[in-house]
C-alpha cells in the first residue's frame, strides 16, 4: 500500500520539483539567511550586550556629569574640557604613548624571535615552547605581586644578586627613571609567550615549497627571512600588532598594585587615571571621558596599523 502510494505520488513530486526550484531561484537565500541568523543570533546578542552596549554607555556617559548625590545631568564636553585643562591628563597621555611606542614593537619583535627559535625542529624545543609560554599562564595580578617582591629594593632577590656582582642595588619601581622601563620589562616577560603562539601558527602556514625553491636558488637564511617569511607573515603580524596595541593601552593591574601611577607620574597610564577618577575621585563622567579617549586612540592606531599592513599586501598583490 505504501509502495503504491509512493509510486503514485512520484510523478507529482517530480512535477513539483522544478516549481520548488523556481521558488528557490526566486528567493534563493531566504531559508538559508534565516537559518544563518538563527545560529548567529545568540552570538550577536552577546556582542551587542557585552561589547557594544558598554562602549555606547561609556561614550554617552562621558557627556554627563554626576553630582555627589548621584544625580546626573547633561554636561556636553565639560568632562573633556576639564581633562584637557589638567596637566596630569597630558602627563598620562605622554606616559601611555611612550609606554606603547616602546612595548608594542618590543613585545612583537621578541615574540617573533621566540617563534622562529621554537619553530626549528630539534631536541628540547618543546621545553622552550613551554618555558616561553609559561609566564602567560600567571594572572596579571600575580605577576605584579611576584615581580614587586623580586625587585624589592630591600628584600628582593634581584637586588641581592645585583649587589653580589657589584652592580649595586637598583630602585626599580621606586625610581622615576626606572619605573616605566621596569613596568615594560615585566609586561614583556609576561606577554611575549602569548604572542609567540599566534606568530608560530602563522609560521607553520607558510608553504615549505617556498623555502625549498629559495634554497635551490641559493637564497641565504637572511634572504629567506626577508623575502619569504616576513611577507608571508603580514597577516598574523597585523593581527598581533592590533591586538597587542589594544591590550597594552588597557594595561592597568601592575600599575594599580605596584606604583599607583608614581613615582612622580612616571607610570601614570591613562587606564589607571580612569580608574582613579572613578573610584577615588568619585568622578564617573571624567572617568568615562578618559575611557572614550582611550577607545578613540586605540581605534585610530589600530586603523593605521591595519592600513600599513594592507597597503603593503596590496602593493605586493
Amino acid at each position: 500500500m505504501t509502495a503504491l502510494t509512493d509510486r503514485a505520488s512520484a510523478p507529482v513530486a517530480a512535477s513539483e520539483a522544478p516549481r520548488a526550484a523556481r521558488r528557490r531561484s526566486a528567493d534563493p537565500m531566504q531559508p538559508r539567511t534565516l537559518v544563518l541568523l538563527a545560529f548567529l543570533l545568540p552570538a550577536l546578542a552577546f556582542l551587542v550586550l557585552f561589547r557594544l552596549t558598554p562602549i555606547v554607555i561609556a561614550i554617552g556617559g562621558s557627556l554627563f556629569t554626576q553630582n555627589l548625590a548621584g544625580e546626573t545631568s547633561f554636561g556636553g564636553l565639560t568632562n573633556f574640557a576639564q581633562l584637557f585643562g589638567d596637566e596630569r591628563f597630558w602627563n598620562s597621555l605622554k606616559v601611555t604613548l611612550i609606554f606603547n611606542i616602546i612595548i608594542n614593537p618590543l613585545q612583537i619583535a621578541i615574540a617573533f624571535c621566540y617563534a622562529l627559535l621554537v619553530m626549528a625542529p630539534g631536541k628540547g624545543v618543546t621545553f622552550f615552547r613551554a618555558a616561553f609560554f609559561l609566564p602567560m599562564t600567571l594572572s596579571t595580578g600575580l605577576t605584579a605581586v611576584l615581580w614587586n617582591i623580586m625587585l624589592d629594593s630591600n628584600l628582593g632577590p634581584v637586588n641581592a644578586i645585583l649587589e653580589g656582582i657589584g652592580i649595586g642595588r637598583q630602585p626599580f619601581f621606586l625610581s622615576e627613571h626606572q619605573a616605566l622601563g621596569t613596568m615594560i620589562a615585566i609586561a614583556t616577560w609576561k606577554g611575549c609567550g602569548y604572542w609567540m603562539i599566534f606568530l608560530l601558527a602563522g609560521l607553520y602556514r607558510i608553504p615549505g615549497e617556498l623555502y625549498e625553491a629559495a634554497r635551490i636558488d641559493g637564497a641565504s637564511r637572511r634572504h629567506q627571512l626577508v623575502h619569504i617569511t616576513l611577507p608571508q607573515m603580514r597577516r598574523p603580524l597585523a593581527f598581533v600588532f592590533v591586538a597587542d596595541t589594544a591590550i597594552n593601552f588597557l594595561f592597568f593591574a601592575p600599575v594599580y598594585i605596584i606604583t599607583k601611577g608614581g613615582p612622580n607620574g612616571a607610570t601614570d597610564l591613562l587606564m589607571f587615571r580612569a580608574y582613579e577618577n572613578a573610584f577615588t575621585f568619585i568622578n564617573w563622567g571624567r572617568s568615562l571621558a578618559l575611557s572614550t579617549i582611550i577607545l578613540v586612540i586605540i581605534g585610530v592606531i589600530a586603523a593605521i596599523e591595519l592600513r600599513l599592513f594592507r597597503d603593503k599586501e596590496g602593493a605586493e598583490a
Partner: peptide, 12 residues
Amino acid sequence: DILRGAFREIQG
C-alpha cells in the same frame, strides 16, 4: 590618595 602618592615620592 593624593597625599599617599606624595609621601611615596618624597621617600623616593
